[in-house]
Design a protein around this nucleic acid. Sequence first.
DNA 1: CTATAATGTAAGTGAACCTTAACTTACATG
DNA 2: CATGTAAGTTAAGGTTCACTTACATTATAG
Lengths: 209, 209
Amino acid sequence: MRRPVVKMRSDVRREQVVQAALKIVGKKGVGGLTTSAIAREVGVSEANLYRHFKNKEEILFETGKGIGAAIRKNLETVLASRVGPVLKLKRAFLLHLEFIEKNEGIPRLGFSEEMHINNKKLKKEFLKNIEVYAAGLEELFREGQRQGAIRKDVDRRALAAMLIGMVQVLVLRWSLSGFSFPLKSEGMKLWKNFAACIAIEHPARRRSL
Amino acid sequence: MRRPVVKMRSDVRREQVVQAALKIVGKKGVGGLTTSAIAREVGVSEANLYRHFKNKEEILFETGKGIGAAIRKNLETVLASRVGPVLKLKRAFLLHLEFIEKNEGIPRLGFSEEMHINNKKLKKEFLKNIEVYAAGLEELFREGQRQGAIRKDVDRRALAAMLIGMVQVLVLRWSLSGFSFPLKSEGMKLWKNFAACIAIEHPARRRSL
DNA sequence: CTATAATGTAAGTGAACCTTAACTTACATG
DNA sequence: CATGTAAGTTAAGGTTCACTTACATTATAG
């Protein structure tokens, strides 16, 4: 009774639909995500979508779920890498930006009312993802403090919030400006500053004041 | 040919409509902002709205403009107060949160596709407001650095982005959680941490490491 | 009192969408 | 071969909105 390793045809189609949805959301926003647009993008009839999904809400939920899974996986990858905690933090931050930069649908969905109001399930999923992500960051901060690379007089929870906030402010501006600047490069500047703020003060730096 | 000081009746009505719109957006989101809902809220006929506004887009634009003006005014007030730059920063941050907390329509609008995609004018206005706000913060950081209250080895532009990011991460969580926690109190925690990060290191604090 | 501005009522148009119904085709299984 | 299942199509129903138009009514200022 085991599920076959090979994906069923229907699973393939579902995946196609989700990908199409993300693409459309990236270009036109959630408001531009109509069943007809999805059908056109996938190359099937509109009615056929309803053979694979209960309704549009499910399509969107699945799309959001996919994004969350990808982001969590990114974090896992970074956590598994064999470098120090501060470098891990940097990598996580930049990888996150890189991923968003390649999927404009993410901010479109994150800044949509579908996310914030209409689709309760999606909202819940998203909130959970943020919390998981924040917890991962907190752990890295703890590790950094333990190793003496990060100052100990700061609250790890607040640091995680700050780092996520940095992503958000960048992405908001990026979205409002019509994706008109390279997200990751801008992120580098912020990271540099953040790193200086949380680092243990070195005598050398103190002298420069 | 000068505009009379006393508001014309039609101006009063426009103001009423804008207020109603903000209220509705706060409760139902931009998607729930229908012409019939506005008319009901104001207590006039739907057709009458079109005697005061060209279309719904104009109503929404005016609403966004009003929010921007209020936020800028808040910042002005803080800038004019006679306290040190760091305290001004704190006040600006908390006042901003307080203002948002009282107007749930602000995050609803800020996280809407109307803002990010559809209403170009609104988008432009919003971006400009962010920049003005950031510039004000930067000036305060500069002042703080000059007075020796804020460390000099950090980039003011990045600091402003961080502070705005802190607002955003709070507001995003607040919005996703259905406005279920006190925004300002949560902000206090973040501020405390931020203040520690940007403060000049005191010998006393260094000892505690 | 009267002209003008403001508002109400009511009916309707047209477009955009999601969803369902009815029917067909391909294919694997017993 | 007979049958069941999944995948596909076309066509249309039904709803929600923004916005318009025509005409009647009330309020206000001069």
